[in-house]
Design a protein around this nucleic acid. Structure first.
Lengths: 346, 346
DNA sequence: CCTCCTCGTGGAATCGTTTACATCAATGCG
DNA sequence: CGCATTGATGTAAACGATTCCACGAGGAGG
């Protein structure tokens, strides 16, 4: 592969001049410029990004470590992150942690070794020393969706409290009283937060939430299946199952179907995170939707602001919203229009 | 960040010795080794992958350019690719082309600039000069799922011919005669191949396939919706719609639902590419399933074989299989067990 | 006419590694 | 005892870019 030396030789100038042409340095003659450009064209020369990075100490690359690529929510997040990053002149390397702390660590380490300019993380757990050290050492970092409390890193996320309250209100209005939740791992903020919001809303309506109605899941379909089976085995099973993410909802559906039960007649179902398929499941599933695209874009902008030293980025919080469909027992009205965005500084 | 020099200084040896310890070179004394390791630990030193790549001319990184991350099929493919690559000591950088040739080109260029060791591509179109040049210039490359005819690059894919014939047989058996297909872009092999297989199977059963029953889609949901609307507007609409991928099937469902029609009573639906959600749609959707994970793993192995110069990798073809559910008109039996794998050389 | 800038250019250092080569001490063997 | 071999180490040259610095030519201003 042709290097800058070959170009310099072909154009009859020094490598310094070639570099200046390529980087649009002002002080280079028109004559030299055209000769260099011609040589570049003729040789099909492309600068070696590895060498360039070594010298300039920047890779123009962002790392994105997400919890699970197979989850459509994170896929959409990844897509919007890449899109915004590309618009700002950055590439993205995605690391899929599969909800496993060891894999998360592996990816963070690899990304750091590659000297990415900044890191976007949706942490799978409380944070390994590795990640915390990196944050403390000054690696530009932004948490997205999930975060780690007590760490000085901006967070871009959606707040589901209000939507969860809306959901409980909706369920209460339909006459449901025994509600159960399939929670995510307590080590994740979204895992514990959604349970907390649910518990608070239940209390608000004077409904009991026995421990038996809080199932411990791990955001994967299989755990949704397992927990739901447990619920169904209860002497008095819940009337509603609320899954804290869409994959566990899928598992719950599997379990319910395996028993030959029907939604919502025998048991109602709702989920956190909306996806296009929820419109076509049997029945269409009531869900809490996050403004995923905006989340991804805002996170990238915050991170790039930090990298390029414009200012210290603030945390951003969007609102999630309830989308009522038929899985809890009533014909759905129109799909509501998107809710307004709310920003806050932390 | 600490560099190898710092480690050398701290351990009281030269950088060469540090490098030797880190690369497990045999000729280094036990004493020196322990001192170096201690210094590494103390300083939290991690080798700079950028510098190492520059020197060794290998990045231990694979590029994967896929057509659409939002398509669960490709997400699963990406996941299996990353998994296998990691097992073999490689990282993966994913580029999402969104079915756009210009984006595909952008990613190929960026990946090449980063001097990735090899490229895995599922081409969106007939192939840009850039990609073809790279292949000719000797960049290790493997096509996965889709390929470009006439290019000397191994292909790892699933052959859907038999499964499509099975599907047509199934539909014929249910009494359906007017079948329509939502095709993918003709520029993609999977786009044209699936139509061809469908056409051949139809001919085998003596069924006509008028042009009006071949809708032109682009593998995205929106096109599925549009084409399906066209079908439904026909004076004599088809009895069955076969979508060449799962996203177009989603669009078709949207369109059918918008008309207040029911599947399969008013119109039947089948799709290429199976996904977990198809079990829970209303009704469960009959689909052709690919061994996606195996595809990804085989592709990586072929590419790495090529990179590490073990041998010239052969093309590999797996078989797709029909999964009958209820969307075409009959209660589904058991889910069939996985089909055997078939290998061929090209 | 001399001096001082400015502009275009090239030489060479540098980024953090790996590795070919040289060096030196210790060992084995005739 | 002397010489060849081996093993452990260090020195320095790459890899391909960017960029500081020096240099010479030319123009402007006194």
């Amino acid at each position: 592969m042709a290097s800058i030396k070959d170009v310099a030789a072909a154009a009859g100038v020094s490598v310094a001049t070639v570099s200046r042409v390529l980087n649009e340095h002002p002080s280079v003659s028109a004559d030299a410029r055209t000769r260099v450009l011609a040589a570049v064209e003729a040789l099909g020369y492309r600068p070696n990004a590895v060498a360039r990075s070594l010298r300039t100490d920047q890779t123009h690359t962002l790392g994105l470590v997400i919890s699970d690529v197979l989850n459509p929510y994170f896929t959409e997040l990844a897509r919007s992150v890449e899109e915004e990053a590309r618009a700002l002149g950055y590439s993205v390397i995605i690391g899929n942690a599969d909800e496993r702390p060891d894999l998360q660590d592996h990816h963070v380490r690899t990304l750091l070794d590659r000297r990415i300019d900044g890191l976007l993380v949706s942490p799978t757990d409380g944070g390994s020393p590795l990640m915390l050290d990196a944050a403390r050492a000054g690696t530009p970092m932004v948490f997205v969706d999930r975060w780690i409390p007590g760490v000085e890193v901006p967070v871009v996320r959606a707040d589901g409290r209000a939507a969860v309250r809306d959901l409980v209100a909706h369920l209460y209005g339909l006459g449901h009283r025994r509600l159960a939740i399939i929670a995510g791992p307590a080590a994740t903020t979204t895992g514990s937060e959604r349970v907390e919001a649910f518990r608070a809303a239940m209390a608000e309506y004077g409904l009991p939430l026995p421990d038996a109605h809080i199932g411990q899941g791990d955001f994967q379909a299989e755990s949704g299946r397992r927990v739901t089976e447990g619920f169904l085995d209860l002497p008095e099973p819940p009337e509603v199952v609320f899954a804290a993410d869409n994959l566990m909802a899928l598992g719950a559906l599997d379990a319910i179907r395996a028993r030959g039960l029907r939604v919502p007649d025998d048991i109602a179902l709702a989920a956190f995170d909306d996806i296009p398929w929820f419109v076509h499941t049997d029945p269409p599933i009531t869900a809490i939707a996050q403004p995923t695209g905006e989340l991804g874009r805002a996170a990238v902008r915050a991170l790039v602001d930090r990298i390029e030293g414009r200012d210290v980025p603030a945390s951003v919080t969007f609102a999630a919203r309830l989308v009522v469909r038929r899985s809890c027992g009533e014909p759905a009205p129109q799909e509501p229009s998107p809710s307004p965005v709310q920003r806050s500084t932390s």
